[in-house]
């Protein structure tokens, strides 16, 4: 029996189906399962000739699947390689083994993807884009659209290919020591950029001031605070929100409501005053 090999065309089609369709039919019950089925279908159709074999292979991928879809392209690549090996009669690999690997990977990959792509790459790109869009310039959004789509499309393609070629070993790319060092440096870069985004774009200011009998101002709290550490009220609010959510396990929506209460009380006592007038 001739060795079965997936054609470039089928692999490309599988990648495209994942790239576009990973979340289009999302539900809370089966998050990315249908995206995965669509990504595997071109491969299964090429590897197996009879309907029965195809059905058996597809049944593997009906199991629940959810991960961070961009970095998750690697898992699709890995299963493409495994499915090919299975079709060539490798006894060690059956549907159950593939599902075991898949289920074992989706948690860690989701963690890496969420912190690296959503938590770091996107905020860095958006941070730069925000800097470029001051005064309403279109340079900002255009930069983000081009940079993000180029990086992530080539990145996903690379991860899919590596997954297919290296199989389970591909994961070393993401969790090996060198990969961890790279990841930590990027996260550090991202955290610094986010710090400057907070300083540039967020501005919590107090209007609290005291005047003496002659109507002369002798205390301006905002100026006092800024002479200690510029923007320290903004920083304090960020830390407060972080503390509520990370330490007190308060949801973001409730945190926002807490801010509404603080703002209301602050306005009443004259601590906050946005200085509105017509």
């Amino acid at each position: 029996m001739a060795e079965k090999k997936l054609s470039k065309k089928a692999l490309n089609k599988s990648f495209r189906n994942w790239y576009y369709g990973n979340l289009t039919c999302f539900s809370q019950e089966h998050m990315q399962t249908f995206g995965y089925l669509c990504a595997m279908l071109p491969l299964v159709e090429e590897l197996y000739d009879t309907k029965e074999e195809q059905k058996e292979a597809m049944d593997t991928y009906t199991a629940f699947f959810n991960t961070e879809p961009q970095v998750g392209a690697m898992i699709v690549g890995i299963t493409a390689g495994l499915e090919e090996a299975k079709a060539n009669g490798n006894e060690d690999i059956d549907g159950e083994a593939i599902n075991g690997i898949r289920a074992g990977l989706m948690g860690p990959i989701a963690g890496i993807g969420d912190s690296l792509v959503v938590g770091t790459l996107i905020p860095i790109l958006l941070g730069i884009a925000l800097g470029l869009s001051s005064g309403g310039s279109i340079a900002g959004p255009i930069f983000y659209i081009v940079a993000w789509n180029l990086i992530i499309t080539f990145g996903m393609k690379f991860l899919y290919k590596k997954g297919y070629e290296l199989g389970g070993k591909a994961v070393d790319f993401l969790v090996g020591e060198q990969a961890t060092a790279i990841r930590e440096s990027i996260v550090m870069l991202g955290t610094m950029v986010v710090g400057s985004v907070a300083a540039t774009w967020v501005s919590v200011k107090t209007s609290f001031h005291l005047v003496n009998d002659a109507g002369k101002e002798f205390l301006n709290l905002q100026n006092q605070l800024d002479s200690v550490y510029p923007g320290c009220l903004t920083a304090a609010f960020v830390i407060f929100c972080w503390w509520l959510m990370a330490k007190k396990k308060v949801s973001p929506v409730v945190t926002m409501l807490v801010l509404v209460v603080i703002a209301f009380v602050g306005v009443l006592v004259g601590f906050f005053n946005p200085g509105l007038k017509y």
Partner: peptide, 15 residues
């Protein structure tokens, strides 16, 4: 003016 603090804090929670 305070709400962006929540967004930044969500991000900090990650790192």
């Amino acid at each position: 003016s305070m709400l962006p603090c929540v967004g930044i804090a969500i991000l900090l929670k990650q790192v």
